[in-house]
Design a protein around this nucleic acid. Structure first.
Lengths: 132, 132
DNA sequence: ATCGCACACGTTATAGCATAACGCAATTGA
DNA sequence: TCAATTGCGTTATGCTATAACGTGTGCGAT
């Protein structure tokens, strides 16, 4: 899925996420966009839905928040499973990919004949700066 | 963290989860325990908090639900990272462990000096029966 | 051209998930 | 005995997400 041109709302939401230095909740995004005419959560969620589909935004399931992809220029969906390390102190998120992990999980699903659609890997803890 | 004797509320919640054939939301658990005197969500959440701590229940972050551990007799926390495959059609959950995946993720966190506290691995898709 | 369709958008209302803050009772250990 | 801890119950509230309805716009097929 490659990204077509973004609509106005999609572009606004994406811009907010790109400028943020950490993940944002949908409602935080909404608040940041009230000056741009956003009034209801659905405006945010609908934009997010598309941005997730295009692979330029990721959803962090364990904290109900959204973050811009670390390399939105490339097609993130083609990099295999995306993994995240989330600092519970400063909120900073690191995105990474590990093909060996992908292979192990794919091996398991193949063995079970499980048809994987979407895989979540999220490590919560303390980043180097905060752990010190 | 080994499990001390469960309190009445904890035992009730755990029993409901054990009998269920899939993950349950906190509010679903609440409804199933109204006849036993449960009236408020907090009664469920407080019990769940302890059961999670004891490692006899797992939280599925991607679906906001809870499931009994596949082997609550052993200490699940000592098995390394727990991974789940969740069927989006029938709701069935398979729990598994893969030490190679653990090692790869630990290698990454070590390299980044990230202090991991809790890791989530959840694969959503279709189980063998539902994919057919 | 205009009809039908797909899609984005706006709004209101509601559903679903989780915790804050208060107070009470029982237990434990100094 | 007193203080600290833990579990419990209740009320209220906050956060997250979607249902359902209607509007407008662009675009291809007939």
């Amino acid at each position: 899925m490659n990204a077509p041109a973004l609509t106005k709302n999609q572009a606004l939401v994406f811009e907010v996420l790109e400028k943020a230095d950490g993940p944002l909740s949908a409602y935080t995004i909404l608040d940041k966009l009230r000056d741009h005419g956003f009034r209801a959560p659905l405006q945010v969620y609908r934009a997010l839905e598309k941005l997730l589909e295009y692979g330029v935004v990721h959803r962090l399931e364990s904290i109900n928040a959204f973050v811009a992809c670390a390399h939105p220029d490339q097609n993130c969906h083609s990099h295999g499973i995306v993994a995240f390390a989330i600092c519970e102190s400063c909120g900073h998120v690191m995105e990474f990919h590990d093909h060996e992990v992908d292979h192990r999980l794919m091996d398991w699903t193949r063995g079970k004949k499980f048809k994987a659609e979407k895989t979540t890997i999220e490590i919560r803890g303390l980043c180097e700066a905060c752990a010190a």
